[in-house]
């Protein structure tokens, strides 16, 4: 309504708990008497450019594979095709999931809540949705919300993809996600934004939202989009930091990249061939 009437911004004056907000456009965070505080918090929230966003159509083409050593990273990349996500009831290998879903390629997904190798728990860090789910499954573990704020929320539907900074308190209801993309079929929360608009993010920028072990040497994995809007994912065959990984991906022409779970879970598969593992 504000836009129709020619205003640049507006605010609601309803008082209520932030976590009970109806959506991202109606956040019960500040009443009109606390505007000064809102501006202060806004300045803190955009530090390190965390309000970056990506929105583009998905370009679907043949699935291609390439490998190259770039900036000390043994990169193995798969691009093309149409992406879809899958959440297992327990835990499964990527090869089995590729086979079971009739897919041609796959990579391990995002970070899971229980890292123990013997665990069979399938809870993920952050919200998630697959085509099989009617609504987004929110992350209601409020104790980790402060750490997750502004991490890259990746979503797509049949016509386009987007990456937005995640705001846990206002992204609880499915409706909040639909405001970003009405026909969204898949979403998950990346561990850190590694490359944006073809530029590698700095160590400080990665650590501003990523976990403290982002700079550990691990076999790293990512998902994102190239300059043409094609999905691209890949992993390293050697152990590298997220900073090195980001630099090498930007060098290879990756436009947007978010960090996936890396280390023991790293797994890149094309058909029956395993090309990288943890």
């Amino acid at each position: 309504l504000a836009r129709i009437l020619g205003y640049k911004m507006s605010f609601t004056i309803a008082n209520g708990l932030a976590e009970e907000s109806p959506g991202i456009l109606e956040v019960n965070r500040y009443v009109h008497t606390r505007m000064e505080k809102a501006w202060e918090d806004r300045d803190k929230a955009i530090k390190n450019g965390v309000t970056y966003r990506y929105e583009a159509p998905i370009t679907v083409g043949p699935i291609t594979y390439e490998s190259e050593k770039v900036e000390g990273c043994d990169l193995r990349l798969i691009r093309g095709g149409m992406p879809t996500t899958f959440i297992s009831d327990a835990r499964q290998g990527v090869s089995d999931l590729v086979k079971a879903t009739g897919s041609q390629a796959g990579i391990n997904g995002t970070f899971f809540a229980m890292a123990a190798i013997k665990s069979t728990d399938n809870r993920l860090v952050g919200p998630s949705k697959t085509p099989e789910m009617a609504e987004v499954l929110p992350d209601m573990e409020t104790t980790r919300w402060p750490k997750l704020r502004n991490r890259p929320l990746v979503m797509w539907g049949p016509y386009g993809a987007a990456i937005y900074p995640y705001q846990p308190a206002t992204m609880v209801q499915d409706r909040a996600y639909r405001e970003g993309m009405l026909d969204m079929t898949d979403c998950f929360l990346g561990g850190a934004w590694l490359v944006h608009q073809g530029m590698a993010r700095t160590r400080e920028q990665i650590l501003a939202t990523g976990s403290s072990d982002s700079m550990d040497y691990r076999r790293r994995a990512f998902f994102g989009f190239d300059m043409d809007g094609r999905p691209i994912c890949g992993a390293t065959y050697n152990s590298v930091t997220s900073e090195q990984f980001a630099v090498s991906l930007a060098e290879k022409g990756v436009s947007e990249a978010v960090l996936l779970d890396s280390g023991f879970s790293t797994s890149l598969v094309l058909g029956e061939k395993i090309l990288a593992s943890g």
Partner: peptide, 25 residues
């Protein structure tokens, strides 16, 4: 084994399949 995966569906480029054979672990 992992609880979440990103899968790609589409036609696989023939030359890429050959290249992947060399890198298979």
């Amino acid at each position: 084994p992992i609880p979440h995966a990103i899968l790609l569906k589409g036609e696989v480029d023939k030359a890429s399949e050959e290249l992947a054979k060399k890198d298979e672990i």
